[in-house]
C-alpha cells in the first residue's frame, strides 16, 4: 500500500499523540514548505531521504514521436531528486525488497 499524507498524519496522531487536526495540518505544511523551497530555488536536503531542487533546461529542438515533426521544446524547469547516500546504501543492502512486491500489487 502506498504511503499517503493521511497515513503519515495517522502515525503522528497515534504514536506521538496530537489532535487529528494538528497532525493533518503539520503533514500538509511539511510538504508545502519543501515545495516552497524548491520553487524559490533552494536545494532542499532532507537527511535520510535526499535532496530536491529545480534545474533550468534550455529551449531545444525535439520531435513529436507520433508525427515525427520537429518542434521547439520551450525552456523549462525540472525537479531533480538525488537520493542520499544513506538511503542508497540501505536499499543496496536490503534483500527483502523483491519479496514484498509479490504479495502486493
Amino acid at each position: 500500500m502506498a504511503v499517503t499524507k493521511a497515513e503519515l498524519a495517522e502515525i503522528i496522531y497515534r504514536n506521538i499523540g496530537f489532535s487529528k487536526k494538528d497532525a493533518t495540518e503539520i503533514v500538509d505544511t511539511f510538504f508545502d514548505l519543501i515545495k516552497e523551497g524548491i520553487i524559490s530555488g533552494e536545494k532542499v536536503k532532507i537527511k535520510g531521504i535526499g535532496t530536491f531542487y529545480a534545474r533550468s533546461k534550455k529551449e531545444r529542438l525535439g520531435r513529436n514521436p507520433q508525427t515525427d515533426k520537429p518542434m521547439m521544446i520551450s525552456a523549462r524547469k525540472v525537479i531533480v531528486y538525488r537520493a542520499g547516500t544513506s538511503l542508497k546504501k540501505l536499499l543496496k543492502e536490503n534483500k527483502i525488497v523483491a519479496s514484498s512486491k509479490d504479495d502486493g500489487a
Binding site: 499517503t4 499524507k5 540501505l90
Partner: peptide
C-alpha cells in the same frame, strides 16, 4: 514529528512501497 515522517518514508521505500503525496509527487 518530522523524524517520524522521514522514518516512515524510508521504511516504505525499503519494503518497495510507494509514497504518494498529492500535489508534491511520488517516491
Amino acid at each position: 514529528i518530522v523524524n517520524s515522517m522521514v522514518e516512515r518514508i524510508i521504511e516504505a521505500l525499503r519494503k518497495d512501497d510507494r509514497i504518494e503525496i498529492r500535489g508534491f509527487g511520488s517516491l
